[in-house]
Amino acid sequence: MPVRGVGGIFVKSADPDAAKRWYQEVLGLELNSYGGFDFPHAEAAETFGDGARTIFARFEDGSDYFAPSEQAFMVNLIVEDLDALLARIKAAGVALIGEPQQFDYGHFAWLLDPDGVKIELWEPAKPKA
Results as ranks from 00 to 15, higher is better:
N76K: 01
L31Q: 05
E99H: 03
G7H: 10
G93D: 00
Y34D: 08
F37Y: 09
F10M: 10
L121V: 09
F103Q: 13
I89P: 00
G49R: 06
F73Y: 11
D81Q: 02
E80N: 06
E123S: 10
G51I: 12
F37W: 07
K126M: 08
K12L: 13
K128Y: 13
A45I: 05
I97R: 00
Q24T: 11
P68N: 06
P124D: 09
A52G: 02
I89M: 00
Y34T: 12
Y34A: 13
A44Q: 10
G36H: 11
L27F: 07
P114Y: 08
P127T: 02
K12F: 14
G51K: 14
L86D: 01
Y65G: 10
A19W: 12
R4D: 09
V11R: 09
H41L: 04
F108K: 08
E46H: 14
F39R: 07
N76G: 11
S13A: 14
S13I: 10
R21M: 08
F37K: 08
T47E: 08
V79I: 02
P2C: 00
P100H: 01
P68D: 06
P40Y: 02
I97K: 03
D15R: 15
F48P: 00
E123T: 06
P68F: 03
P114T: 03
G35P: 15
V117Q: 14
H107G: 00
W122H: 11
G51A: 06
L96N: 01
G62M: 09
Q102G: 04
Y105F: 15
M74S: 14
R88I: 00
S63E: 12
G98R: 07
A18T: 08
E30I: 03
A109Y: 08
L96V: 01
S33M: 06
F108I: 04
E70G: 12
V11L: 15
F59G: 01
N32V: 03
K20S: 14
S13P: 15
V3G: 09
D61H: 11
G51T: 10
K118E: 07
V117I: 13
G51F: 12
H41F: 06
L31F: 07
L77Q: 07
G106D: 07
N76F: 04
M1I: 06
Q101P: 11
P124M: 07
E25K: 08
W122T: 04
K12G: 15
V11C: 13
N32R: 00
G28K: 01
A42L: 01
A87V: 00
F39E: 10
S33E: 14
Q101L: 05
G62H: 13
P127D: 00
A52S: 07
F59Y: 12
D17A: 12
G28Y: 02
V11T: 06
A52M: 03
I119V: 14
